[in-house]
């Protein structure tokens, strides 16, 4: 009996050891393949030039339109998400602080909203676009991506805000400040590290998402100057180029994938770094 127990323990340990390391291996392998394939195809020309004539048949040029386009789109969407999301997150944690049940219900609904796939947001954005009389453009893309990333921003920010002790608010009220002043000057400041993490998380999602902008942002070889021009994005540029039968065009898709992955890694790492740095201002 005792040996069976020990044997079973060894077996379970072995299986779980294998599972853990194969997960690590698969994920590292993924990064390795994407980087090794892409870095070979990557050049300064790819990053810093627009597609030129015959680009999609293997001609000269690069993916600057998609890089700048993604950046514009994501910055716009993040600004919109902050305008809607930050007040909402503060409201949950200041005005509703005594209503635990309401808070939990709101969090529950927002979490469910987080799980809606981006293609649904894309289809909804398309409906909205028709309703507002817009055509596929930077503005329509920004609105759609903003809808997608706002719940993420709110929940990520809220996760930090909810750890702030109630006493801090009470101290602020007792000094005579209004709820708004408390929210903006005390709670927001206290949650600044969380805000930066949430901001970068939302920004990263905005850059990386393809399915939501497929309908709404259009595609172009130029960098948009106004809000009603179509815009190219990195994920879509990867997607379109990869479906080409020409090898050189596919190579560029690999290069674009490296650029995108690099941006995302940069954003995640700097989110970690910055949130540690700003955590210093927190009153404990």
């Amino acid at each position: 009996m005792r040996t069976w127990k020990v044997w079973e323990q060894q077996l379970a340990r072995g299986i779980s050891f294998l599972a853990a390391y194969s997960v690590i291996f698969i994920l590292l392998f993924l990064l390795f393949v994407v980087f090794s394939k892409g870095l070979k195809a990557l050049s300064w020309e790819t990053i810093f030039s627009l597609p030129k004539g015959g680009y999609y048949f293997g001609g000269e040029g690069g993916i600057l339109n998609a890089i700048v386009g993604s950046f514009y789109l994501s910055v716009g969407a993040t600004i919109l998400a902050v305008i809607i999301g930050v007040p909402a997150a503060l409201f949950i944690n200041v005005q509703l602080i005594r209503l635990k049940r309401t808070q939990n219900t709101i969090r529950y609904l927002l979490d469910a909203l987080w799980g809606i796939p981006s293609i649904v947001y894309g289809a909804f954005g398309f409906t909205l676009m028709l309703l507002l009389g817009l055509h596929a453009s930077l503005l329509a893309g920004i609105i759609t991506v903003a809808l997608l990333i706002t719940p993420i921003l709110v929940r990520a920010f809220d996760e930090v805000l909810k750890t702030i002790p109630v006493e801090l608010q009470e101290a602020s009220f007792s000094l005579g400040s209004t709820k708004t002043e408390t929210a903006l000057r005390v709670i927001f400041k206290q949650g600044l590290a969380g805000f930066i993490t949430a901001l970068l998380l939302a920004f990263g999602r905005g850059i990386g998402d393809a399915a939501s902008v497929l309908f709404t942002a259009g595609y172009t070889d130029n960098i948009p100057v106004t809000l009603d021009e179509p815009v190219a994005t990195l994920p879509l540029s990867i997607f379109f180029q990869l479906s080409s039968p020409i090898e050189e065009v596919r190579e560029r898709a690999y290069a674009a994938a490296v650029v995108l992955t690099f941006f995302i890694l940069l954003i995640s790492v700097s989110a970690r770094f910055l949130s540690k740095r700003y955590a210093k201002n927190i009153i404990k």
Binding site: L27, L30, V34, G204, A211, L260
Partner: peptide
């Protein structure tokens, strides 16, 4: 943190990996 960062990698990159491997 590694898992967290990998969760943020866009799906199109997973797609590229799928096509390649």
């Amino acid at each position: 943190p590694v898992i967290d960062i990998l969760a943020g990698i866009p799906s199109v990159v997973y797609g590229v990996w799928g096509v390649l491997v």
